[in-house]
Design a protein around this nucleic acid. Sequence first.
RNA 1: GCUGCUGUAGCUCAGUGGUGGAGCACGUCCUUGGUAAGGACGAGGUCAUGGGUUCAAAUCCCAUCAGCAGCUCCA
Length: 603
Amino acid sequence: MVKVTLPDGIEKECKDTLAASVVTGNTKEDLEILRHSAAHIMAQAVSRLFPGVKLGIGPTIENGFYYDFGLQHGLSEEDLKKIEEEMSRIIREDLAFERTELPRDAAIKKMEALGQPFKVELIKDIGSDTVSFYSQDDFVDLCRGPHIHRTGTLKVFKLLNVAGAYWRGKETNPMLQRIYGTAFFTQAELEKYLKFLEEAEKRDHRKIGKDLDLFSFHEEGGPGLTFWHPKGARMRNLIENFWREEHFKRGYEILYSPHIAKINLWKTSGHWNFYRESMYSPIDVEGQEYILKPMNCPFAVLMYKTKLHSYRELPLRWGELGTVYRYERSGVLHGLLRVRGFTQDDAHIFCTPDQLENEILGVLELAQFMLSSFGFHEYEIELSVRGKGEKEKYIGRDDVWDHAENALKIALDKKGLPYTRMEGEAKFYGPAIDIKVRDALGRGWQGPTIQVDFNLPERFDVKYVGSDGFHHQVVMVHRTVLGAMERFIGCLIEHYAGDFPLWIAPIQMRILPITDAHIEYAKKLQALLLSKSFRVECDTGNAKINYKIREGSLEKIPYLLIVGDKEIQDGAVSVRSRRKGNEGAVSVEEFIKNIDAEIREKR
RNA sequence: GCUGCUGUAGCUCAGUGGUGGAGCACGUCCUUGGUAAGGACGAGGUCAUGGGUUCAAAUCCCAUCAGCAGCUCCA
């Protein structure tokens, strides 16, 4: 082991003299130092190629790094290649990273002289008296460090893409050009990462949705509006059936409500004031203004209020697969994961204040049950609360909010679930527990949510008669346990890469007659299986059995049932399972028994 | 919405300022084949839409629409 001193004075032990020129490459920190240095080298390359470029910031991120540039010239893919080449040149030059420190004022002057307004702004925000710079050759950058010793240490890197990014993430600030890249200690690691990106692309629900004929979007229909094809609709239908059954088992009833309602309803609910930017313009109906619903809650309230409710009836758990429409800016739409029209697996629970905690627990358990039923075992939980000093964004009194927030916290703590507290992420009417599931690229999407609401009951004067004979205000819980059908199915597709378990697969099995002579038997078999509620197709196409197997496999059908002379003679099917390949012949009864079990156990 | 990129057959994608191609899919015929692609022939396109430049535009320019990546938003 060799002890080396890094440029910022930190001592570090390294295995050998070669590695000692930098860091060991063994830790996450080492990788971050390497990537951050790569960002500097990239900035140097861009400065060489585009003199006068204004430098923004260049941090490391989960899988690499980026650097933001203020530049008139629009960067293209070809520019990335040139920048990569220039970076390679800088690496070959093996320049030293040198650290210098300057008093704040001198640093500001220096950056002003270099024509770097963003850096000036950054230094002005730094609290300390001195700031540090790192330079390679004539390139200087404001930086805390640490860095690798010499540019030559960077061996494996790749620039990935260019995108716009607002300076300091503020929409009102100028937009800079951000170049994303990544760096690793070994070529093998880079290739592994690129492989991951490739695999993620194959899991993309938009691609699989097209390949498996599940859904489509149409320029003629409008962006963010989903068209469910028979197979996608089949999946959605069975998920919804499962959802309904599980809700009935837990004491829920279900509702149906209209898609539009008069504007006054939305004024009373507060949506018109607090949610308008997500709502579509009013529709004129005989001189009255109607609004396409962005949420289902006011409808449940109206139904609740059709009669007087006793505390003895509560809690009322009213579910609804309610389709809502929200205006989303065009740039945020993303396949099924972010759409403009979607069906929430909504429910509204009307309860007394002392029932609240128990109801939240029940919903948490149901959400966990639903997610695990569909194979999701990893998700992140957030407690979304009000932001400080943003009162105008929310309805209702402070004490009411605190009460609601507390109820959610207690439920999470009782279940022992780890969560992150998210300031400023609450809905306008109340705090929430939000559960996020990840897509193939690891991006999180909000699915289930549990929201406590003391405000709508107040606005609509929603009451129950207590044991004391007086009227009391109910507490409402808004919740989804999947999120929305569109987003959930999008995530589901990526989770399974389209290779669904038998109970969810849109087509569970396909019968493949070997020749035309076997079609009759195949059809009879299909009718039998259909009558037992299996989702089964029959491939009567004029093709060899190999070809039919290939097609069925590409469509990720769980079972291919091959029937020929032998099977007809024995009343059997030859089973080829997607997971296990050719399993040989079994009797039809045996096969049915096996798949019944597989479906029941949701394997 | 913003920045950059993209839009050619049902799908995946080549392509050039001078009358549009491939593979797969589809149709017909031949073939009746036992666990991942049998063969022949055929049909299919206002080259996203609308303008402009040009003798001539799918190709160059502008706008619009839609998609992709990211930012912002949603929270």
